[in-house]
Design a binder for these strands. Structure first.
Length: 202
DNA sequence: TTCTCGATTGTCT
DNA sequence: GACAATCGAGAAA
């Protein structure tokens, strides 16, 4: 199946791109172990105007410099000292947009993911949530700034397309006070999918 | 150099 | 439902 082309990641509309990533296949080849799954939950981080983004207001640091690169690479970082979060950098250079991958539905290497998660049987929580899915797929900060057209981590399009009425768009909680920010951060997930993290109630 | 806190999750009550 | 675990980035000094 074809990997998503470089041009796909150059879109300036990170919100729309976050929607389009739903249904795509995310793969990692770590230490010779192949794992992959269907993306079922994403969250858009709209660069300098997104208050929740690391690059908010043009903040540029060694860590966030990855987000300023041209789209089509990964952005991985450690949160709470425990969890690795996997993002896809999008848009052109110096436009720090990113999409956080929050949930996948495992399709390849399920047993490997179970072992990494130290679980004995498949369950929804295996890959539901950004920290959990990163652990399941063996993602760590060594995967930061990797080319998504490379052979360690990549995304394929196998034609899966969720109907629009199955895709839920949920604004981030706690931004009601700031009307200009209320539109910016968006979370998207597939309705009723067991591999979506908590805010699955609708 | 030092201090605070986070794009979270799992466990205990 | 509430809270602890845990460490590196970012900001201040």
């Amino acid at each position: 199946m074809p990997k998503l082309p470089f041009s796909f990641y150059q879109q300036e509309n990170v919100v729309q791109l976050a929607v389009e990533l739903l249904g795509k296949q995310l793969f990692t080849l770590i230490d010779g172990k192949l794992t992959g799954g269907t993306i079922v939950e994403t969250e858009a981080y709209n660069g300098v105007i997104d208050k929740a983004s690391h690059a908010y207001n043009g903040r540029y640091t060694p860590r966030t410099s990855t987000m300023y690169e041209a789209g089509g690479i990964s952005y991985v970082y450690l949160c709470y000292g425990i969890h690795h979060l996997f993002n896809v950098v999008t848009a052109g250079k110096n436009n720090p947009h990113a999409v956080l991958i929050r949930g996948i539905e495992p399709t390849i290497g399920v047993d490997i993911m179970l072992a990494r998660r130290k679980m004995s049987a498949p369950a929804g929580r295996m890959t539901a949530g950004p920290g959990a899915l990163a652990q399941a797929m063996g993602i760590n900060k060594d995967l930061n700034a990797k080319d998504l057209l490379g052979d360690e981590v990549w995304i394929e399009d196998n034609g899966i397309h969720f109907p629009s009425d199955q895709i839920i768009a949920a604004p981030r909680v706690g931004v009601d006070y700031a009307e200009e920010h209320a539109l910016l951060p968006w979370r998207f997930f597939v309705k009723g999918n067991p591999y979506v993290s908590k805010p699955n109630k609708f």
